[in-house]
Structure formats: C-alpha cells, structure tokens
Amino acid sequence: MTSLPGGSDHGGSAMEPHPLVCARCGAPAHVADGPPPATWTCSVENGVRQFFCDTCSRDYLRAIEGRLDSSWW
C-alpha cells in the first residue's frame, strides 16, 4: 500500500493549501481549491512543477513550446 508524503502512515500532517501564482509574474490564479484555470500553462523544470498565467503563456509561447526553461525567457 502506498500513500502521499505527509499521510497518516508517515506520522506527518497534510500539506496546507497555498495560493496558486504565476511563476513568472506572480499573478494570482483566483481559484479556491480547484485546478488552475484552463488558460494557464504547466511546466516541469528541474523536477519542479511551475504554473504560468495566460498572459505570460501567450507572451512566451514560442519559448515554452521550444522547451526552454523559464530562466532563459
């Protein structure tokens, strides 16, 4: 049987929710506890999941599609 880190079988507490913000500009997603807006982009860089707002996604679409890390653009 497997469980997520922080689960009751590991003696930890559940992670507290944190507001979703754009990794590029810091714009908030304005969602309560649901998934990010459909217009946002998700990227995994160096094993870390990052979300980018619709404005940044549009502005840097070519770099995102080219798989360039956000530090480059």
Results as ranks from 00 to 15, higher is better:
residue 1 M to G: 13
residue 1 M to S: 13
residue 1 M to T: 11
residue 2 T to N: 06
residue 2 T to D: 10
residue 3 S to W: 02
residue 3 S to M: 03
residue 4 L to M: 02
residue 5 P to L: 02
residue 5 P to A: 02
residue 6 G to E: 08
residue 6 G to H: 06
residue 6 G to D: 05
residue 7 G to E: 10
residue 8 S to P: 14
residue 8 S to A: 14
residue 9 D to V: 15
residue 9 D to F: 15
residue 10 H to V: 02
residue 10 H to G: 07
residue 10 H to D: 04
residue 11 G to E: 02
residue 12 G to E: 09
residue 12 G to R: 09
residue 12 G to Y: 05
residue 12 G to F: 06
residue 12 G to I: 02
residue 13 S to W: 06
residue 14 A to C: 06
residue 14 A to H: 10
residue 14 A to I: 04
residue 14 A to S: 08
residue 15 M to C: 03
residue 15 M to E: 12
residue 16 E to Y: 09
residue 16 E to I: 11
residue 16 E to F: 10
residue 17 P to L: 05
residue 17 P to E: 03
residue 18 H to R: 15
residue 18 H to A: 13
residue 18 H to L: 11
residue 18 H to E: 15
residue 18 H to D: 10
residue 19 P to L: 14
residue 19 P to Q: 15
residue 20 L to Q: 06
residue 20 L to V: 12
residue 22 C to F: 04
residue 22 C to N: 04
residue 22 C to H: 05
residue 23 A to E: 05
residue 23 A to D: 10
residue 24 R to S: 15
residue 24 R to M: 14
residue 24 R to C: 13
residue 26 G to I: 05
residue 26 G to K: 06
residue 27 A to Y: 05
residue 28 P to T: 10
residue 30 H to C: 09
residue 30 H to A: 12
residue 30 H to Q: 11
residue 30 H to W: 08
residue 31 V to C: 14
residue 31 V to P: 09
residue 31 V to Y: 11
residue 32 A to M: 03
residue 32 A to G: 01
residue 34 G to Y: 01
residue 34 G to W: 01
residue 35 P to F: 14
residue 35 P to D: 15
residue 36 P to C: 09
residue 36 P to N: 10
residue 36 P to G: 09
residue 37 P to L: 13
residue 37 P to S: 13
residue 37 P to E: 13
residue 39 T to P: 01
residue 40 W to T: 05
residue 40 W to Y: 07
residue 40 W to K: 05
residue 40 W to Q: 07
residue 41 T to R: 13
residue 41 T to C: 05
residue 41 T to G: 01
residue 42 C to I: 14
residue 42 C to S: 15
residue 43 S to N: 12
residue 44 V to R: 01
residue 44 V to A: 01
residue 45 E to D: 13
residue 45 E to G: 08
residue 46 N to K: 10
residue 46 N to A: 12
residue 46 N to Y: 06
residue 47 G to N: 07
residue 47 G to P: 08
residue 48 V to L: 07
residue 48 V to D: 04
residue 49 R to H: 01
residue 49 R to N: 00
residue 49 R to C: 00
residue 50 Q to C: 12
residue 50 Q to K: 14
residue 51 F to P: 03
residue 51 F to S: 09
residue 51 F to I: 07
residue 52 F to Y: 15
residue 53 C to P: 02
residue 55 T to K: 14
residue 57 S to G: 12
residue 58 R to Y: 07
residue 58 R to V: 06
residue 59 D to R: 14
residue 62 R to L: 02
residue 62 R to S: 03
residue 63 A to L: 01
residue 63 A to E: 08
residue 63 A to N: 07
residue 63 A to S: 10
residue 64 I to H: 00
residue 64 I to R: 00
residue 64 I to Q: 01
residue 65 E to V: 07
residue 66 G to S: 08
residue 66 G to E: 04
residue 67 R to H: 15
residue 67 R to P: 07
residue 67 R to I: 11
residue 67 R to C: 14
residue 68 L to E: 04
residue 68 L to A: 04
residue 69 D to V: 10
residue 69 D to W: 04
residue 70 S to L: 01
residue 70 S to G: 00
residue 70 S to C: 00
residue 71 S to L: 00
residue 71 S to V: 04
residue 73 W to V: 03
residue 73 W to K: 03
